[in-house]
């Protein structure tokens, strides 16, 4: 609780967890990669990261939309036209979906900060809830966009 997570981030590659290598030699090796699946909480976590990086790029588009829409009547119409164009709707929906997932998964993070969903079962349950809630949100945003 309340410790900066960067130094033992589960996403971190490389040499941070050196202490575990000592026991590794005695472990059975599973070379059948098709039987290995990332736990649900890991999928929820990496998706949180992917949406985060995606949103970093999307902010560039959003900044353009904000500037143009406030600059003039013509700019406002231009943004409106772009966002209601049949293909551009996918972009609007995509960005909104990333926001929804990142937000819902972020709320799970805050719960984990205060000590909830830290067990294997609890983490899987909370991850399921994150996927379900954000799916509902993403569908609702889709209904609104179209």
């Amino acid at each position: 609780m309340f410790s900066p997570p960067y130094l033992n981030s589960p996403h971190r590659w490389g040499s941070i967890r050196k202490e575990t290598t000592a026991v590794k030699n005695n472990r059975p090796v599973n070379l059948d990669l098709t039987t290995i699946r990332m736990p649900l909480s890991a999928i929820a976590s990496i998706t949180h990261r992917i949406t985060g990086v995606g949103l970093f790029v999307a902010v560039g588009f959003l900044m353009w939309a904000l500037t143009a829409s406030l600059e003039s009547q013509a700019g406002f119409e231009q943004v409106k036209n772009v966002l209601t164009h049949p293909f551009a709707k996918f972009i609007a929906w995509g960005i909104a979906s990333f926001v929804v997932y990142h937000l819902v998964a972020g709320i799970k993070h805050l719960f984990m900060d205060i000590g909830y969903f830290e067990t294997k079962e609890g983490g899987a349950l909370a991850s399921k809830a994150v996927f379900a809630l954000s799916a509902v949100g993403i569908i609702l945003v889709g209904v609104w966009v179209w």
Partner: peptide
């Protein structure tokens, strides 16, 4: 953005 992207960049 800075904290998040810094974390991702230093991980990968």
């Amino acid at each position: 953005i800075w904290v998040g992207m810094w974390t991702v960049a230093t991980d990968y």
